[in-house]
Design a protein around this nucleic acid. Structure first.
Length: 725
DNA sequence: AACACCTGTGTTTTT
DNA sequence: CACAGGTGTT
């Protein structure tokens, strides 16, 4: 094969990195310098020239999305044989390893992965059991303490004794939480990495087999690795390994999540003979944008040092606009967007970035009023939605009836006359006999103590339902099982009566879950498990680690709205960064420490370097926060950019957008209501139509009501009255 | 057990 | 202000 093809499109530094001989390598890749490109080509290069089997490749990315993208790009270069490489997040790699050795790792064969929500629930329960004052130690605080330590690679036993009562209580909670996880045979995210480490330590031969298999280990976004991940990675690599890592210290923005930039330096120390390569040529942004970004980041004292340059033209200077308030901020932005769109630029190449998700609302409303389609990232993720968790509860009980947390979740959903009292009885029985909840529930239901009692009958009914369900899905394919379980659970009917307004959305989510199951591809290497419902089990395992089902709502023609964090790794022709004020960016809570401040500066830097050709920086003189207006100061970061690097924008002629156009209709006449239309609802009063899905009488429309907030309504049932405005 | 009210909270986010 | 989750009431 013509391997030159792999190098033709690279610059000298990229080429040097890609063709390095086996051995530790650190690529310091500036924003837009072709970092992913280098990783992808490095993998392809090793496969094609070093006689490396794709099987020996393990590449770690920060998100599942990045992993998918990288996989498809490698496949594009070397073809389907690359399918067998391991490519994913730290957690999914650890999970994959653990699930092959559950017994040795001391986990149940179908162990549950607790997400943040499950984790907090469990911690709350423990706080109550331990009779700790919930006011002084809110679950969220304990959770933060525990995760902070876990991210730092510290088990409860390794956390140094703090001084003071407070620290002691938290430490105790951590200890109890840890043993609770152990006894449940469950794992939170960090636990996956810990357990994997423990497994390797207890079974050196296993570690050896993984080390000799994965000769080619690569890590992306290295600057954001936390200590736990770093230690895991170092263990797997071993002293003889030659890992290839890529990162940019200027883009480290996850310190609050345990990420430690220092790992970049530590890497070169820990791996003797590390080759360091810098990629400083930026291919993304215009000269004027890059100048601003460089000027800003130069204010961070602790940097490895790196100056981005570009061969592209200077282009237009970034525009700075000062609005009176957040309404004008949005009005200016949207009006600028309108003129860009009218010039023919595709909407999906325009992004609005902000520090906190709460800022999105004004933009949403303004976009809606002007009938501009947008896509918003962030908010409640798919697998965290309540209805999905309900359905997953049933599914988990199918794969593993002894799963206690799943049992508790669906115990009384749909409501079936079982409450806290009955549950506590089951729990007590389980504690006493050392059995699972389901086993104790069966014992209670069978015991003749009070067979006619209402709760006993309800309990029997629930248990029968589970048994029947299990019977009914035997032999079905995965999607069929999911569908059947949802139907038999009668969750849809329950949502319908419980909260008719939200029912439709929820039922749709459940349909999405069936889709996700239909599209699920199991680990091809997994041994054919003899366990019943093995595919279901694999699906459930993967789900918590991949919180967003693949490309659900990606449609062209939509403006992109997201937080600065979420923008990492992306690029847009035109970028608006809003809310450049003290207290917002830098965020008030990050200004107390220099470390925090530097991270905020990097966050802004990440935002600036997302822009390819046009950049708008916007601030408001006053801003409404929790109902009150506050005067603001310009972000100190704006003052760090020399004034002549920016162009100051005059208020647009239209700073206040016209009111929603009465009677305005979208192009498709089958929509019964137009976006921006004023309506009245018999119960919720007056409101404005935000958007709609589907068409005809069954379509759902989203209305923001004054006073009662935004609601999804079914057109047919909503009895809405159109108003003139 | 179910519902209405009330209180506290409110950075970023992947896994 | 807006919402989630928790408490208290029926």
């Amino acid at each position: 094969m013509d391997t030159n093809r792999l190098l033709d499109t690279l610059n000298p530094e990229q080429r040097e990195a890609v063709t390095l001989p086996f051995g530790p390598a650190l690529v310091l890749a500036g924003a837009g310098s072709g970092k992913t490109r280098v990783l992808v080509h490095r993998i392809a290069w090793r496969i094609e020239t070093a006689d490396t089997s794709p099987q020996s490749v393990l590449a770690v990315t920060f998100t599942n999305k990045a992993a998918r993208e990288m996989r498809s790009r490698v496949l594009g270069l070397v073809g389907p044989k690359a399918q067998s490489m391991w490519l994913g997040t730290f957690h999914s790699m650890a999970y994959r390893i653990l699930s092959r050795h559950t017994r040795e790792a001391g986990l149940r064969s179908s162990f549950t992965i607790l997400d943040e929500d499950d984790q907090r629930r469990l911690i709350r329960q423990l706080i109550r059991e331990m009779q700790v004052n919930e006011r002084d130690f809110p679950p969220a605080l304990a959770q933060w303490y525990i995760n902070q330590n876990k991210d730092a690679g510290l088990r409860a036993g390794s956390v140094p004794d703090g001084d003071g009562q407070r620290d002691r209580v938290l430490h105790d909670l951590y200890r109890v939480y840890e043993s609770k996880l152990q006894s449940l045979g469950a794992a939170d995210f960090a636990e996956l990495l810990f357990r994997c480490q423990d497994l390797w330590q207890a079974h050196p031969a296993l570690l050896e087999s993984y080390r000799s298999r994965f000769r080619e280990i690569l890590v992306d976004e290295f600057q954001d690795t936390n200590t736990l991940q770093y230690l895991w990675f170092r263990t797997l690599t071993g002293a003889q390994g030659g890992p290839f890592v890529v990162g940019d210290d200027d883009q480290a923005i996850y310190g609050w999540r345990g990420g430690r930039v220092e790992h970049v330096l530590r890497f070169a120390k820990d791996f003797e003979g590390t080759r360091v390569i810098r990629l400083e040529q930026n291919y993304r942004s215009s000269g004027a944008i890059l100048t601003v970004a460089n000027a800003l980041i130069a204010h961070n004292p602790s940097r490895l040092g790196k100056t981005l340059w570009t061969a592209s033209e200077t282009g237009r200077r970034p525009v700075l606009f000062t609005a009176d308030d957040e309404l004008e901020e949005a009005a200016y932005t949207v009006s600028a967007i309108e003129s860009i769109l009218s010039g023919g630029q595709p909407a999906e190449t325009i992004a609005i970035l902000y520090r906190s998700n709460a800022q999105s609302r004004v933009f949403e409303e303004t976009l809606v009023r002007n009938s501009i389609a947008y896509r918003i990232y962030g908010g409640v993720r798919f697998f965290e939605r309540g209805e999905i968790k309900d359905a997953l509860g049933y599914l988990r009980l199918m794969a593993d009836p002894e799963n206690d947390s799943a049992f508790e979740r669906v115990f009384n959903i749909p409501t079936r006359g079982l409450g806290e009292k009955t549950l506590e009885r089951v729990r007590a029985q389980a504690r006493q006999d050392g059995l699972s909840l389901i086993a104790s529930a069966q014992a209670l239901a069978r015991s003749t103590a009070a067979p006619a009692e209402r709760s006993t009958r309800a309990l029997s009914g629930f248990l029968t339902l589970l048994t029947d369900m299990r019977e009914a899905i035997r032999g079905l394919d995965l999607a069929g099982q999911v569908e059947r379980v949802i139907a038999l659970s009668r969750l849809p009917e329950y949502y319908q009566t419980d909260d008719p307004l939200r029912a439709e959305t929820r039922i749709e989510s459940l349909a999405e879950l069936v889709n996700a199951a239909a599209g699920f591809e199991p680990d091809p290497e997994a041994e054919p498990a003899s366990i019943e419902f093995a595919p279901l089990q694999a699906f459930l395992g993967q789900i918590t680690l991949a919180m967003e089902p693949e490309s659900r709502t990606d449609r062209p023609g939509q403006i992109q709205l997201m937080s600065l964090h979420a923008a990492k790794g992306l690029e847009f022709h035109t970028v608006f960064i809003a809310g450049l004020e003290e207290g917002l960016l830098p965020h008030i809570r990050a200004t107390e420490t220099t470390g925090g401040l530097e991270e905020e500066r990097r966050l802004f830097y990440v935002g600036l370097t997302r822009a390819q050709r046009q950049l708008y920086l916007i601030r408001a003189r006053r801003r409404r926060l929790r109902g009150h207006y506050f005067d603001t100061l310009p972000s100190r970061f704006l003052l760090e950019i020399p004034a002549d690097h920016l162009e100051t924008a005059e208020p647009r002629m239209v700073t206040r957008l016209p009111h929603p156009r009465a009677g305005y209709r979208t192009r498709d006449p089958s929509y019964p209501a137009a976006i921006g239309q004023r309506v009245r609802h018999p119960k919720f009063g007056e409101g404005t139509v935000l958007s709609h899905e589907g068409d005809g009488p069954q379509c759902r429309i989203h209305v923001r009501f004054e006073g009662s907030g935004a609601k999804w309504l079914i057109w047919e049932h909503a009895r809405l009255e159109a108003l003139e405005s």
